[in-house]
Amino acid sequence: MDIGNLMVIKNLQYVILGAIILFSILSLIVIKPLKKFIFIFLFYLFSGFLYITLEFMELTFILSVPILLFMSIFYLFELKKDIFSIKNISEDGDIDYASAYFTDKESGKSDTKKTVLNLVAPVLFSALIIVLYFIFNGGYIKSFKITDKITIVAFSDIAKEVFSNYMILVIMLIISLFVLVIWSTTIINNRRKR
């Protein structure tokens, strides 16, 4: 494919990348679970669009399967957390679990100190990464050598690569899925017994 044909896609990429960053920030800020999950979904959707503009259509569809599975269980967890929220339970009146929960929390003596530290530490860590970038890598971006030709990876290429070279990982993956089944059935059975 000629790279000149991709001019439209290039301009599209700016918009899509902006949208990805916007939705990631929004999904972190928004409090209501439903809205939050709409934004996470949009975040994944736009990252999928980006992969498609980079000519990875089939990879995007393959990757969407684990993402959807993960998102569904994540959404279930969030819903459950919202339903069994401590505010809703304390109105039951029968047993005061809420107070039992709150008394066991760490005493709020050094609360202000903790919140300051809690804000300062991430800022420092992020700043450390930025500083490391500027110390070590002035020439990182300049060193990119852009190629002229772009080819499209078909699913058959990926499958060929996986099954010719990485068969051993597929075997490990199958065994780990067995392990996952054993583990999850045990967890579910224990919850049911209780």
């Binding site: 450390l128 070590f136 990182y140």
Partner: peptide, 12 residues
């Protein structure tokens, strides 16, 4: 010259 940042992220 270009691997410094990579290695610092790996070290982190």
């Amino acid at each position: 010259d270009n691997l410094g940042f990579v290695f610092s992220i790996l070290a982190l």
